[in-house]
């Protein structure tokens, strides 16, 4: 039972199973985040006051976080590059850089939340803020999940096992990055 079934090793579509599954995960994630963003857009476009509300978000913090995520994306793709060359030491190091990036991202996010809530911009102030907390919270949840999975994968990689998983988690992490690339202008820049 501990052995993987033969099914897992087959690849009739030409895409390795793990990667194929990640593409489908992303497809389902696109509609989750996309649905949320579409709802936000509909409200945003016809509520004049949301433009003022958005002025209270901290552009500098958002920009810094974009930078952090882009950098961690670079790290995870370098980890994949190293894993392809079977350089496990380097791969683990880059995975940990990525996890560290996730930590920095969440720390900045925590600072933002604290400062916003202390100024009265809570989830209940207006639907803009409800969307703000829901969208960034859902995104943050994905960041934390990605960090946790990366930690588990890094333990395998250290032993030289399951190196193909570095690519899979990498693709997921890039997707989280892409979601932020869209949340950043939506919530922080367009005012």
């Amino acid at each position: 039972m501990s052995q993987a079934p033969i099914a897992t090793s087959r690849s009739a579509s030409g895409i390795p199973t793990a990667r194929l599954a990640v593409w489908w995960v992303l497809a389902s994630e696109i509609v989750i985040f996309g649905g949320l963003i579409m709802c936000y857009l509909m409200f945003r476009l016809h509520h004049e006051s949301w433009a003022y509300e958005a002025e209270a978000t901290k552009t500098a913090a958002g920009a810094f976080n974009t930078f952090v995520l882009l950098t961690s994306s670079l790290f995870v793709v370098l980890a994949h590059n190293a894993a392809e060359k079977k350089d496990t030491v380097k791969a683990v190091r880059y995975i940990w850089y990525t996890i560290f990036g996730g930590f920095v991202f969440m720390a900045v996010k925590a600072y933002e939340y604290t400062s916003e809530i202390s100024h009265g911009y809570t989830m209940f102030k207006s639907v803009f803020w409800s969307f703000y907390y829901l969208a960034t919270g859902l995104h943050g949840f994905h960041v934390v999940c990605g960090m946790f999975i990366m930690w588990m994968i890094s333990r395998d990689v250290k032993k030289g096992k399951n190196l193909h998983r570095v690519e899979a988690i990498g693709i997921y992490w890039h997707f989280v990055d892409v979601v932020w690339i869209f949340l950043f202008p939506l919530l922080y820049i367009a005012k």
Partner: peptide, 22 residues
Amino acid sequence: MCSVGPLIAGAVMLLFDQTLGT
């Protein structure tokens, strides 16, 4: 898979409306 995504986001929104008061 393709149709349920927006509703998952929407269900969280409804849950917040129910329990938190958004």
